[in-house]
Simulated assay, not measured.
Amino acid sequence: MKTNSLSAWILAVRPYSLGAGIIPVAVASALAFTDGGFRPAAALLCFAFALLMQCTANLVNDLWDFLKGADQPDRLGPDRAFAKGYITPGAMKAGIAVFTLAAAAVGCGLLWWAAAHGTLRYGGWELIAAGAACIVFAYFYTAGPWPLAYHGLGDAAVILFFGLIPVCLTYYIQTGTCTAEAVVAALACGLVIDTMLMVNNFRDREEDARCGKRTIVVCLGAGVGRWGYFALGTVAVALCLSLLAAGRMWAALLPLLYWAVFLATWRKMVRIDHGDALNVCLGETARNMLLFGVLLTVGILLG
């Protein structure tokens, strides 16, 4: 692959993972639509911000996991552009800066839109705080003196920044409020998206232990990886079932289809147990995550 080529950058931003940025915004926008508050322009800006921030986080992760020794050219997982030498250090740092500035620009546009349409309750400071937190998370998930992913907090961070914050904030920007249903949907999204991190950490547990990356799986053992993965998907579906109480039958029942394919992937993960063969489970987990997002979004729209 040619150094610093478009193909190298596409590899670096990890297209297979970008559903994690799309799903929370889609679910929140569907909720806003059924509650009579959907705003297309705001939804598009939220989509753009989420995708740009995820690309930023992926690039930072690519750079710093290599610098900390977690990603080497012979790693078990999918190729990392920086570890393979496809992107030079200067170009990677410049790319991180460009994506960060682009996300900040979109965030400013979102702030302007929300202020112009009167959906802000606290003068816009809540959006500024949330945007700043997203940028801090993108960097300090793997970078900095105390990276979250290296101290057992990666899963909590994913649930917060790919579940609670994007769903609740997208819904709030469009409607000016937040509901219990939005919080339930946010938690469900965060848990499902965290299955990708869990299978990654389960696969990399030996490499992570060697380089001092203390994920939950490293700290508590492979059993926590196996059953933690199962619990994440199962609790997410149970949360969706609770939407029956709000009269959202399809939003409650359609995610059961996700659970069926999720269980098949979990069984395969347990059977394979270790090695690069687990990359099959990573691919299936990404597919299952997208399926969950589609099913929950469609279910919300159907009522």
Rank of each mutant, 00 (worst) to 15 (best):
A28C: 02
A28Q: 04
A28S: 06
S29K: 07
A30W: 06
A30L: 02
A30Y: 05
L31A: 05
L31M: 13
A32R: 13
F33W: 15
F33Y: 15
F33Q: 10
F33G: 01
F33T: 11
T34W: 00
T34G: 04
G36A: 06
G37R: 10
G37E: 07
G37P: 01
G37Q: 11
R39Y: 08
R39E: 13
A42E: 11
L44H: 01
C46H: 13
F47V: 12
F49E: 13
F49M: 12
F49A: 15
A50C: 05
A50P: 02
L51W: 00
L52M: 05
L52A: 12
Q54K: 05
Q54F: 02
Q54N: 12
C55Q: 06
C55R: 00
C55K: 00
C55F: 12
T56V: 02
A57Y: 01
N58C: 12
N58L: 08
V60Y: 14
N61S: 11
L63E: 09
W64S: 08
W64L: 01
W64T: 11
D65N: 09
F66G: 00
F66V: 13
F66T: 15
L67A: 07
K68V: 01
K68R: 15
G69L: 03
A70Q: 11
A70P: 02
D71K: 10
D71S: 08
D71E: 11
Q72C: 03
P73Y: 10
D74V: 03
R75Q: 13
R75M: 09
P78I: 06
P78S: 06
P78E: 11
D79T: 14
R80L: 07
A81L: 07
A81F: 06
K84Y: 00
G85I: 04
G85A: 07
I87D: 04
I87S: 06
I87T: 08
I87N: 03
G90Q: 09
G90S: 11
G90K: 12
G90M: 01
G90N: 12
G90D: 13
A94K: 14
G95F: 04
G95L: 03
A97D: 02
A97G: 09
A97E: 09
A97W: 11
V98T: 09
L101Q: 06
A102H: 00
A102P: 01
A103G: 15
A103I: 06
A103V: 04
A104G: 02
A105H: 03
A105V: 14
V106S: 03
V106Y: 09
L110T: 09
L111Q: 02
W112D: 04
A114V: 08
A115V: 03
A116Y: 00
H117I: 05
H117Y: 13
G118V: 08
G118I: 03
T119I: 08
L120M: 12
R121N: 13
G123S: 08
G123I: 07
G123Y: 06
G124L: 06
E126T: 05
L127H: 10
A129F: 14
A130M: 10
A130F: 04
A130D: 01
G131T: 08
A132F: 13
A132P: 01
C134W: 05
C134Y: 03
I135P: 01
V136D: 04
A138Q: 07
Y139H: 15
F140E: 14
T142P: 10
A143N: 08
G144D: 04
G144F: 08
P145G: 05
W146T: 10
L148Y: 13
A149Y: 07
Y150C: 02
H151E: 13
